[in-house]
Amino acid sequence: MSCHQRSKRAPLRRLLGAALLALAANAQAFDLNSDSPIKVSADNARLDDAKGTAVYTGGVVVRQDATELTADRVVLYRSQGALNRIEAYGKPAHYIQPQQGETPKTDAEALTIIYAAGENRLTFEEKAVIRQNGNVFKGERIDYDTARRVVTAGGGSKSDGGDGRVEMVIQPRQGSGTSEAGN
């Protein structure tokens, strides 16, 4: 690869990296250290204190302030009296986090969404799609390390019916006059 080709790819890599971080920056799930309660509504609930689980089914809505998770089935796990894991299952399950400061609204969906607070991990599995400010990130599995702000994605295997690829649609930078990718 020539020096000219490498110099043309550097702005594209920076743009891709910035877009990936922008998509993930707001995906922090629920704030378990907040004073705001997490409210759950559903058609049915089964609480098991001995196991530390609560299983909600039927039109489940989990909300904390304006952050919302909707699914067909949600399992909450408690350990030592504190909520530490949320698993949501749907066709698909949806996760919405409103705009925070300059970070735009995040709208995500997957057949399975898992928030593991102790692991600082938010995972979207099976037909995962994250949308933010016109940008779209798709994969069979998208993991976001909320502490280190690192995204890892996989396209799934071709034997699962997918094409084995991760897809991104990145909108051009708005309002700056010139685009870094256009140079």
Rank of each mutant, 00 (worst) to 15 (best):
A22R: 10
A88K: 00
C3W: 14
H94K: 11
K138D: 06
A22W: 06
C3K: 15
K91A: 10
A93S: 07
G81Y: 06
E119A: 08
I96Q: 08
G59D: 15
A25P: 09
V40N: 05
Y95F: 15
K8R: 14
L111I: 12
T152V: 09
N26H: 06
T123P: 01
T152Y: 07
D43N: 11
D48R: 09
E109T: 08
E140W: 01
Q174M: 14
Q97P: 00
A153G: 08
A110D: 04
S179Y: 04
T53Q: 06
Y89Q: 11
G156E: 00
K158A: 09
S157K: 14
N33Q: 12
D160S: 15
M1K: 10
A66L: 12
L47A: 13
L32N: 03
G58R: 04
G154S: 13
V40L: 13
K138Y: 03
S34V: 07
V150M: 08
V55W: 04
E68D: 09
P92S: 08
S36V: 12
D65V: 07
I113S: 04
E167Q: 14
P92Y: 05
T103R: 11
A108E: 03
R148D: 00
G58C: 06
T57Y: 02
T178L: 14
V40W: 07
V151Y: 04
A42P: 02
A42N: 04
A10K: 15
R165K: 15
R85K: 15
S176Q: 14
T103K: 09
I142Y: 00
V151P: 01
G155H: 05
P172C: 12
I113M: 05
A153H: 01
L122F: 01
R149C: 01
V169K: 13
I113D: 05
L32E: 05
D49R: 13
I113P: 06
G17I: 10
A42S: 11
Q64L: 01
Y144Q: 00
E140G: 13
I114K: 03
Y95K: 03
Y95T: 03
E109F: 07
G182V: 11
K127L: 10
V74H: 02
N135H: 06
M1W: 15
Q132P: 02
S34F: 09
V136E: 01
K105C: 07
G139Y: 00
A24I: 02
L32Q: 03
D107N: 11
K39P: 07
P37I: 04
Y115P: 01
P98Q: 08
V75I: 12
Y77P: 02
D31T: 07
E167K: 15
E87M: 11
M1R: 11
A29M: 06
T123A: 13
R148Q: 02
E180K: 13
I38Y: 01
T67M: 06
A24W: 04
A22M: 11
I38N: 03
N133T: 08
Y95R: 03
G156N: 05
G90I: 01
D163M: 08
Q99C: 09
P11E: 01
S36A: 13
Q174N: 13
A18V: 11
Q28K: 05
F124E: 01
R46K: 15
L83A: 02
H4G: 15
Q174S: 14
L15W: 14
R73E: 02
G156F: 00
Q97Y: 05
R148T: 00
G59N: 15
A27R: 00
A45N: 11
Q64K: 05
G139E: 07
R173L: 10
G118S: 10
A25Y: 05
A82R: 11
